[in-house]
Amino acid sequence: MASTNQNSLAVQFRNLHAPGDPLILGNVYDAATASIIASLPSAKAVATASFAIAATEGVYDDDMTREQNLVAIKKIAAAVVPKNLPLTVDLQDGYEDVKDTIRQVVAMGVVGCNLEDVDTKTRKLRTFEDAVQRVKLAVEAAKEAGVPEFAINARTDVLVFGGTIEEAIERGKAYLAAGANTVFVWGGPSGRGVSRDEVKRLVDAFDGRLNVILRFGEGYLTVTELREIGVARISVGPGLYRIAMAAYKEAAESLLGA
């Protein structure tokens, strides 16, 4: 059972999601990067990125097992929780037993998670009803574990599967009604994306309770622009991981090519 302090930390984490003054998360993927983010005075919380964690395990994101993800999360939690910083983790779809997965991360000191609506085994979009039910199960499990304010960032991949922004809004509203704290509408790793106008529509539809992934580079919405649009949360997914690996490769090439 979680401590009273853990639920207080969850409340603190929820309150950081303020439309127009968004929580900015630098996603981590191991204890070392978690320690770096946690040591920064400007860091208000720590979040993991499943794609980057999978890469450190030598597997593709879709192929990472629950055990691999939980082992990594446990190490990250050991670096973050003692600092009394909120930790939210990417749990993909929550795996086969979503309630047990939530119970396990709560036991590690986690106060929030990402939960997506694509089945990790079949790689198919879950039905509307199934996806909503899994959000409800996650909320229920967190309450049972002693963290009723556990914050779920419910991700929908409906756009990736050819759906419309209207369908994304329908799902997002249902996830919020089921107990999610925010919604993350994923446009895919390349191609479709989510346009500025669509971000505005999503902000209006969800009363600002929207997570947007920030892309590094020219042509993408900036923190300033996303703040003006009114989002509540900004994350970077595997963005920092990719920057780190590019620097590592460059340094290695320089060393080995000398």
Rank of each mutant, 00 (worst) to 15 (best):
D90F: 00
A174I: 13
Y175G: 12
T101Y: 08
V46H: 07
G191W: 13
F206I: 07
N84W: 04
K121E: 12
L137N: 02
N69A: 13
N181F: 06
A232K: 08
R126C: 15
V105E: 00
D62G: 03
G112D: 03
K136S: 12
L214C: 08
E67R: 12
Y248D: 11
P19S: 00
F216V: 12
V203P: 05
E218Q: 07
A49L: 06
A34P: 03
E57L: 10
S195L: 03
E96L: 10
A252I: 13
N5W: 14
R134S: 03
N15I: 03
V105N: 02
G217L: 12
P86N: 10
V106P: 00
V139E: 05
K249M: 07
I169Q: 09
T4Q: 15
I36V: 15
A142S: 03
E116I: 13
F184D: 10
V135S: 09
K75D: 15
A246K: 15
P82N: 14
K99N: 06
V223A: 08
F128R: 13
R171F: 14
Y241G: 05
M108N: 02
W186I: 09
A178R: 15
A2E: 06
K124P: 10
V139R: 15
A151H: 05
I243H: 05
R215W: 13
G58W: 08
K99F: 01
N7D: 14
I76K: 00
R209V: 05
L255R: 10
I53T: 02
V106R: 00
L23R: 07
A246H: 08
I243Q: 08
K75V: 01
R126T: 09
R215F: 14
W186A: 12
K44H: 12
A49H: 08
L176S: 11
N27I: 05
V59M: 13
Q6G: 02
I73V: 13
H17Q: 15
E166I: 11
L256H: 06
G191P: 06
V89D: 01
L240K: 08
E140A: 07
R233V: 15
V105P: 00
A174L: 11
T65G: 09
A77S: 02
N153M: 06
D90G: 01
P19D: 00
V80L: 00
L240V: 11
P22V: 04
A52L: 09
N69R: 05
L214K: 14
R103D: 03
N15M: 05
S3I: 01
K124N: 11
F51K: 06
L23H: 07
G193P: 11
S235A: 14
A251K: 04
D130W: 02
T127L: 11
K143M: 03
T224V: 14
V236Q: 05
A174D: 06
F216T: 11
A205L: 14
D62Q: 13
A205E: 12
T101F: 06
R66Y: 07
F161V: 01
M64T: 05
G94N: 05
G146M: 08
F216S: 12
E253V: 12
V28Q: 06
P238T: 02
G237P: 07
E170N: 13
P41A: 07
T156A: 06
K83D: 03
K200P: 01
